[in-house]
Design a protein around this nucleic acid. Structure first.
Length: 493
RNA sequence: GGGCUCGUAGCUCAGCCAGGCAGAGCGACGGGCUUUUAACCCGUCGGUCGCGGGUUCAAAUCCCGUCGAGCCCGCCA
């Protein structure tokens, strides 16, 4: 049974309908590792729906959170914005209304492409809409109890004057430097490090501290299930405190937890926006088909670590997907987006053919037909779609080893042996030969002439590519067209 | 100090939730073929399921313990 179906079954024991919460922070480039949370949520959502339940995903963008520090990708003047809410900081590239929107927008676009429907909630808006008001009041009133819970769960004593609320200072604009002094039914009174003292309202004047905010959010949005990174899942971590705060302070049953492991970039370690080890999601969904991006996460249980290799490793993954597609594998089923169609043309073949045809669709289809695949409407549609990805992948992630270009003409010197081979080989090439026959012919001719096959292959590649190596010869020549190859050899000699 | 995950064939892993003949791919080996985009075809070999106990008619699977590896928490969120 697939992990998503197991979780769905577990959830359906509790209730027929579920709200799955996600909460990737828009504090920097949102990457594949972050995306695991979204894909995990969506796999569960689909499993619930498939099992006859109701489900939706809410995505809480915490744009009210302060900028923690100036990340390496930020200009120096952003030092001044540290401590201010993300939604109040200008876009470092000037293209959006705020810092948070700059990272949020491409992420939301990616979700669209990946077929992950979400209800977006921006934290600042939620606070301003008074959604947190009641929970904030309760939290302030019960701060001693909350402090006790946090102390018990984390083993960390909180300061005497601790409050579970961070006022947004009206003077300096920072949300992490003011201390609550007192509160009444309407206002929270504070003193800021900047020297300013003032009061703020419950609606948008500040936010609850993380561990309390999380628990409050569960209740406000009626969250019943939530995937989160293993950092939150550790003993004494925020889920543990959240559970007790939800139950004891807000009287709410905490959501079903789905902790997940990090995704590492092969050879580079964990993806961390702050360290610049990232492939932004928006970039990935341009290069890799959405069903494959989803499959990266869905094929593996959430608690297992993933090592992602966008290079040759991705090609293996795609091949595995193509194999499993034929078997109606559940992971594949949960990965497919919309009404995509798949033909039996392998991605690997598209990569070779695309390069030969210079990514021209009609030419590609012609070659695909010639190399023995049936080109019907489905294949046409499928090839058109995946060819674009093949091109992008070659440009972006493919190792040089599998890239090639066919030069206008080649000027290379052939040995007497090579010349002799090419002449005979070109003569014997027939238009109606299959790729296998073309391949075998290389061996036949070289045997006949007493030439080492390796020399023979080299001669062929030299004539076509000007290099001593290239794609598998039979398919390659068939793809290029036998007539063309014959002409090419004649011209090269 | 605490938590999570992993430990199954030489390698990468599936199987474990819900106990019922130990699995796949790759590699190795034999053969065919033999420069190839991580070649292909046929066949063979390959495991004390980390270790120790317990439950059971039956344990890779459940329970307890233990060893090893990785990560996370014990700053902030």
């Amino acid at each position: 049974m697939h992990w998503a179906d197991v979780i769905a079954a577990e959830l359906l024991k509790r209730s027929d309908s579920h709200t799955i919460a996600t909460g990737i922070s828009p504090s920097g480039h949102i990457h594949l590792g972050n995306l695991r949370e979204m894909v995990t949520a969506d796999a569960i959502r689909r499993a619930l729906v498939d099992a006859g339940g109701g489900a939706k995903i809410v995505y809480i963008a915490d744009d009210f959170d302060p900028l923690r520090r100036r990340y390496p990708f930020l200009p120096e003047e952003y030092e001044n914005y540290v401590g201010m809410p993300l939604c109040k900081i200008p876009d470092p590239e000037g293209c959006h209304n705020s810092y948070s929107e700059h990272f949020l927008q491409p992420f939301l676009e990616s979700l669209e492409i990946l077929g992950i429907p979400v209800e977006v909630c921006r934290a600042y808006q939620m606070y301003r809409d008074s959604l947190y008001e009641e929970n904030t009041r309760i939290a302030l009133r019960k701060r001693d109890e909350i402090a006790r819970i946090i102390a018990e769960v984390t083993g960390r004593e909180l300061e005497e004057d601790w409050y579970p609320f961070m006022p947004l200072c009206k003077n300096c604009g920072r949300i992490n430097s003011a201390k609550v002094k007192s509160f009444d039914e309407k206002w929270v009174y504070y003193e800021c490090e900047c020297g300013y003292s003032g009061k703020v309202s419950y609606s948008g004047g500040g936010k609850l501290t993380w561990r309390v905010d999380w628990a409050a959010r569960w209740q406000i949005l009626k969250v019943t299930c939530e995937p989160f990174g293993k950092d939150h899942a550790a003993a004494g971590g925020s889920y543990d405190t959240g559970v007790r705060i939800a139950k004891e302070i807000f009287n709410y049953e905490p959501p079903y937890p789905v902790p997940y492991e990090w995704i590492h970039l092969k050879g580079k370690g964990a993806m961390k926006s702050s360290k610049g080890i990232v492939i932004p999601v928006r970039e990935m969904v341009e290069v890799i088909p959405p069903e494959i991006v989803r499959y990266i996460t869905i094929r593996v249980k959430p608690e297992r670590h993933i090592e992602f290799d966008p290079g040759i490793g991705l090609l293996d993954l795609v091949e595995e997907f193509e194999e499993k597609f034929k078997e109606k594998d559940r992971s594949v089923e949960l990965s497919l987006v919309g009404d995509v169609v798949y033909s039996d043309v392998p991605f690997r073949h598209l990569i070779v053919v695309g390069q030969i045809a210079n990514w021209d669709l009609d030419k590609v289809l012609e070659i695909i037909e010639r190399t023995g695949y049936r080109v019907d409407e489905i294949a046409r549609k499928d090839v058109e779609r995946r060819l674009k990805y093949a091109k992008k992948w070659i440009e972006k992630y493919a190792p040089d080893r599998i890239k090639f270009e066919i030069p206008e003409n080649v000027s290379v010197d052939f040995s007497e042996e090579e010349e002799r081979f090419l002449k005979v080989y070109a003569e014997k090439l027939q238009n109606n030969m299959s790729p296998e026959e073309i391949h075998t012919l290389v061996y036949d001719v070289s045997k006949e002439l007493g030439i080492k096959p390796s020399k023979a292959f080299q001669a062929i590649y030299k004539a076509i590519l000007g290099k001593t190596y290239g794609p598998r010869a039979g398919y390659f020549i068939k793809s290029l067209g036998v007539e063309w190859v014959k002409e090419r050899i004649k011209a090269a000699l």
